[in-house]
Amino acid sequence: MQLACVTTDLERAVSVFRDDQGVREFATFDSLQLPTVGSGQAAINWGLTYVGDLQLEIVQPVSGEVDVFRALLPERSDRFALRSHHIASQLDSTDEYDR
């Protein structure tokens, strides 16, 4: 259902998928504010598209509680990186999840 990546540069990551993989259409959002556990906030730059039934998501952590995204990236943000973050599947029931 979903393939998610993290990056240090959303614009460049979108270009990689467009130029190298032929993924033409992306919706992108800058400084999207997300609530986190408790009363925290995370700001991300976000890209989203569909390739057939697969949702492709690219996240660039910006500020706030973004460690879950930043953990896979190099410490130096001036180095471009594009890394796999997670794969999600849609399940139809809790029984399917339990299996």
Rank of each mutant, 00 (worst) to 15 (best):
V6W: 00
V6L: 08
V6R: 00
V6S: 01
V6P: 00
V6A: 08
V6N: 01
T7K: 01
T7M: 00
T7L: 00
T8I: 02
T8K: 05
T8G: 03
D9L: 01
D9Q: 07
L10N: 08
L10M: 09
L10Q: 15
E11K: 15
E11T: 13
E11N: 13
E11Q: 13
R12W: 12
R12T: 11
A13L: 13
A13W: 00
A13D: 06
A13M: 12
A13H: 02
A13C: 07
A13Y: 01
V14S: 03
V14C: 05
V14Q: 06
V14G: 04
V14F: 12
V14T: 06
V14R: 04
S15I: 03
S15G: 07
S15K: 11
S15D: 14
V16R: 04
V16H: 01
V16L: 05
V16W: 00
V16A: 00
V16E: 02
V16K: 01
V16N: 02
F17P: 02
F17L: 08
F17K: 09
F17S: 04
F17I: 02
R18H: 14
R18D: 04
R18Y: 05
R18W: 05
R18S: 07
R18K: 14
D19L: 05
D19P: 12
D19T: 08
D19V: 04
D19W: 07
D19K: 10
D20L: 10
D20Q: 14
D20I: 06
D20H: 11
D20T: 07
D20N: 12
Q21T: 05
Q21D: 12
Q21M: 12
Q21A: 15
Q21I: 11
G22P: 04
G22V: 03
G22H: 09
G22R: 08
G22D: 07
V23Q: 05
V23W: 03
V23S: 11
V23H: 13
R24P: 01
R24V: 06
R24A: 12
E25A: 15
E25D: 12
E25C: 13
E25G: 06
E25Y: 14
E25N: 10
E25I: 06
F26Y: 10
F26T: 10
A27Q: 10
A27K: 11
A27H: 15
A27S: 14
A27E: 10
A27F: 07
A27W: 05
A27N: 09
A27M: 11
T28E: 10
T28W: 03
T28M: 14
T28I: 09
T28K: 06
T28G: 08
T28R: 13
T28S: 11
F29V: 10
F29E: 08
F29N: 05
F29Q: 05
F29L: 10
D30H: 12
D30Q: 15
D30M: 14
D30G: 12
D30V: 09
S31I: 03
S31Q: 14
S31R: 14
L32C: 10
L32D: 03
L32Y: 11
L32F: 13
Q33P: 08
Q33D: 15
Q33H: 13
Q33W: 07
Q33S: 14
Q33R: 15
L34S: 00
L34T: 00
L34K: 01
L34A: 02
L34R: 02
L34H: 02
P35H: 10
P35M: 07
P35W: 11
P35A: 15
T36D: 11
T36N: 15
T36F: 06
T36W: 11
T36R: 14
T36E: 10
T36C: 11
T36Y: 07
V37Q: 13
V37P: 15
V37M: 09
